[in-house]
């Protein structure tokens, strides 16, 4: 295809991505380096019959002029990155010096919003991802051995947790796990503690969120592995049987190695997706116990305060995190490309 033709074919989609993905990224980075102008204040003295009072008023004209001259705001450099709401460099240094044990230091770290969110985001990402891969794999093995006629039905129901809107799925689970819901009551009954409640316990809330994460994403792993199982070479499997491999050994030495590329694929995709965990925190009303980077951004953007600079800074930090998780995928794609060329 000629360059010219290619250009016209590709133009609409390129424009959409440039204007609404690339440009906002640049804008977000800029916003994270600037803070809005403070209003220019002037002191005025009002003298009346009872003496003089000084009052401070906003000089609208000067403020407006300043905003017009430099619409981006005051250049702050990395100031916002290091403030208490983000990397909190000063607070960490202080905590490091004052705290006597590692435990105490980590406790202080947990009070800083960014590190609190980071702790949950990373735990969630690295606990949920392996669990959902294992669950998806076992489901795929079990479904593969089913009668053909019920397979379709099983796949249909298995797809539901993944297809349903994350916020809706998490609400549905939350209403059941909540202390007044059916599973919540079952847990209270089993634990023998009628006051046990998700809302009051951080570990329980973390577990519930992770259960949701596995529930939501295991179907994806299942579908991918199930498709992979259809392509397992039957000859190899048969020769393994003739050589006397047990069922477990067949899975371990024939099926797993065959599916390994798919496991990597699912792991990479899911690491990136779980890193942006957000909706379940809203659905579970969990922000008192668990926050994530995405949730912080959402929280800064919403509400009355509308802290754009703070949100932009967290966004940049999130993008850096995603980039780190994405790098293996890029390396892989690059190798594929080099291999083909």
């Amino acid at each position: 295809m000629k360059h010219r033709t290619f250009f016209w074919f590709f133009l609409p989609t390129a424009l959409a991505m440039l204007i609404f993905i690339a440009a906002p990224i640049v804008s977000v980075v800029m916003q994270s380096l600037f803070v809005p102008h403070e209003a220019v204040l002037i002191e005025t003295e009002n003298c009346g019959p009872f003496g003089c009072t000084t009052s401070i008023v906003i000089d609208q004209e000067a403020t407006e002029q300043l905003r017009e001259e430099r619409p981006l705001g005051r250049f702050a450099g990395l100031e916002i990155y290091f403030d208490r709401g983000h990397l909190a460099v000063a607070e960490i240094g202080e905590a490091w010096q004052t705290s006597e044990s590692i435990g105490e230091f980590l406790g202080e770290l947990g009070d800083l919003p960014f590190y609190r969110a980071m702790a949950f985001t990373l735990s969630y990402t690295f606990i949920v991802t392996p669990l959902l891969i294992i669950l998806g794999f076992v489901i795929a093995l079990a479904v593969n051995s089913l009668n053909r006629r019920i397979k379709g039905l099983v796949i249909f129901f298995s797809l539901l947790p993944m297809i349903v809107t994350p916020l809706i799925g998490s609400l549905i689970l939350f209403w059941m796990i909540d202390s007044r819901g059916i599973i919540g009551e079952l847990i209270q009954y089993l634990a023998g503690d009628p006051d046990l409640s998700l809302k009051a316990s951080t570990p329980l809330m973390w577990m519930a969120l992770m259960v949701y994460g596995v529930w939501h994403s295991a179907p994806f792993a299942f579908v991918v592995f199930y498709a992979g199982l259809q392509t397992v070479p039957q000859d190899t499997l048969e020769s393994a049987q003739i050589d006397g491999a047990s069922r477990w050994e067949q899975v371990r030495y024939v099926i797993l190695p065959h599916l390994m590329p798919l496991v990597t694929f699912v792991a990479l995709i899911q690491l990136m997706d779980n890193f942006r965990v957000f909706e379940p925190i809203v659905g579970f009303n969990a922000s008192a116990h668990a926050t994530s980077l995405s949730w912080i951004i959402f929280n800064d953007l919403g509400g009355e305060t509308n802290q754009l600079s703070a949100a932009a800074t967290t966004s940049v930090l999130t993008i850096i995190g995603v980039a780190i998780l994405l790098s293996p995928v890029l390396v892989r794609t690059w190798r594929d490309f080099r291999g083909k060329a």
Binding site: I21, A22, P24, Q31, S294, I297, A311, I319, L330
Partner: peptide, 23 residues
């Protein structure tokens, strides 16, 4: 172009929102 698309695909949409709001 495909690599760029892959990177864009990995961006959590919420990180772009603060870039949309001012304009």
């Amino acid at each position: 172009l495909l690599i760029a698309a892959l990177i864009f695909r990995a961006m959590p949409p919420i990180t772009l929102v603060s870039g949309y709001l001012p304009p």
